[in-house]
Computed example of a mutant assay.
Amino acid sequence: METCDECGSMMSSMGDEWICRSCGFNYSDDPGASEDTIETVRNEKSERRSTQNELAKVRKKLKLVTNTVIPLSCPDCSEEGVSLEIQDNSSPEFVCEKCDYRWKPDK
């Protein structure tokens, strides 16, 4: 069974052609491909899966951070209890648990 180079989903074999069921990416088996070429492709796929697994672990850790209350005082209401919120493509923000005031950490 092959995995898609574009999206990582499982591919189906139709004769000498492999087609991704999810994104439609396809390629043909090359009967003249050398074992070195085939092994290189397998290694690249393995490295890509490894990188995707590492990214998933980092994302999981970041979610844990965002759910943690930090013992800091809010600059707006002076109450203690702040969470760190990290969103995709955005810099992190502190959020007061009491008044919902938001601010960026000092750099």
Rank of each mutant, 00 (worst) to 15 (best):
Q87N: 15
G15C: 09
S90F: 05
K61S: 03
P92Q: 07
R49M: 08
E35I: 14
Q87R: 08
K60T: 14
D29T: 11
V95L: 07
N67Y: 07
E6D: 14
P75H: 06
P75G: 11
S46G: 07
Y27P: 03
V95F: 03
C7P: 09
D36P: 01
N43Q: 09
M14Y: 13
E2Y: 15
D36E: 14
V95T: 04
G8A: 02
P71S: 13
V69F: 10
T66D: 14
I86P: 01
Q52E: 10
A33I: 12
D106N: 09
G32Y: 14
V65F: 06
Y27I: 04
E93K: 09
K45D: 06
K61E: 02
M11C: 06
M10G: 11
C74V: 00
L72W: 08
P71C: 05
P75A: 08
S91N: 10
S13R: 14
S91H: 05
P105W: 01
N89H: 10
L55G: 03
W103Q: 00
E85Q: 12
D76L: 11
K60H: 11
C77W: 05
V65M: 04
S13M: 15
K57E: 05
K104V: 12
V65T: 01
S46V: 08
K98E: 08
N43E: 11
T40C: 06
V41S: 04
L62M: 12
K45C: 09
S50A: 08
R59E: 12
S78Q: 14
E2F: 15
D88Q: 13
C99L: 04
D5Q: 05
D5L: 15
S83Y: 06
M11T: 04
E54C: 11
R102M: 01
D106C: 05
P75F: 08
V95A: 02
G15D: 06
D88M: 07
M14I: 15
S28V: 07
Q52V: 04
K98Y: 10
Y27E: 07
G24A: 06
